[in-house]
């Protein structure tokens, strides 16, 4: 028996097993991106897989950007959420390939982004960005398509700065990669 086992057994949960993986997904659906706190790590497409290995849960996580300072925090939040839900010693595995793409953001995630005032990625991440036509970005505030880019880089690595020519409001655009 390991130190900590006793505490885990005193928790409100019975021993978690492979049968509880759907509950783990539900739990991860509640873990929000700390920088965009309306979108869960599942809706962002960061959680690639959840599996049961050697009596433990293992979560495969794809970071969004190489230098995203939230990556470690997100991994920590995932581990904490799972532990709170009764999964002991969750293993978090960082997966780089295939590289995370905005194509993995779910429809629900896109809706939540829009409602939060961030225009969701337009078009496909597979298309080359160079020489490609600039996609039409819809203003998340008024729905106008008459918008312009202010800067390709915004308040976080994943966002660009835009401005709406119709309602004059600035907004963030979740870059397509």
């Amino acid at each position: 028996m390991l130190p900590g086992d006793l505490i885990a057994r005193e928790s409100a949960f019975d021993e978690r097993t492979a049968q509880d993986l759907p509950a783990a997904w539900d739990c991860l659906g509640q873990v929000m991106d700390p920088e965009v706190p309306v979108v869960s790590v599942v809706d962002l497409g960061m959680v690639r897989d959840v599996e049961w290995v050697d009596d433990h849960i293992r979560v495969k996580v794809s970071p969004t950007y190489s230098g995203c300072p939230a990556t470690e925090l997100i991994e920590q939040l995932i581990a904490e959420a799972l532990m709170e839900a009764g999964f002991r010693n969750p293993q978090i595995e960082r997966v780089l390939a295939p590289a995370w793409t905005t194509d993995w953001i779910t429809e629900q995630g896109r809706e939540h982004l829009r409602a939060y005032g961030i225009a969701p990625p337009a078009g496909s991440g597979k298309r080359a960005l160079i020489d490609a036509e600039t996609p039409v970005i819809t203003c998340p505030h008024c729905g106008s398509q008459d918008t312009e880019v202010v800067s390709q880089f915004g308040s976080t690595a994943c966002k660009a700065l835009y401005r709406c020519r119709s309602c004059q409001e600035p907004f963030d655009y979740f870059k397509c990669i």
């Binding site: 190489s66 390939a97 960005l129 690595a157 870059k175």
Partner: peptide, 15 residues
């Protein structure tokens, strides 16, 4: 793997 990820970022940098 590292390069595939970095490539997406480098395209924005170059642009």
């Amino acid at each position: 793997g590292v390069a595939g990820k970095a490539l997406k970022e480098a395209r924005y940098h170059f642009k």
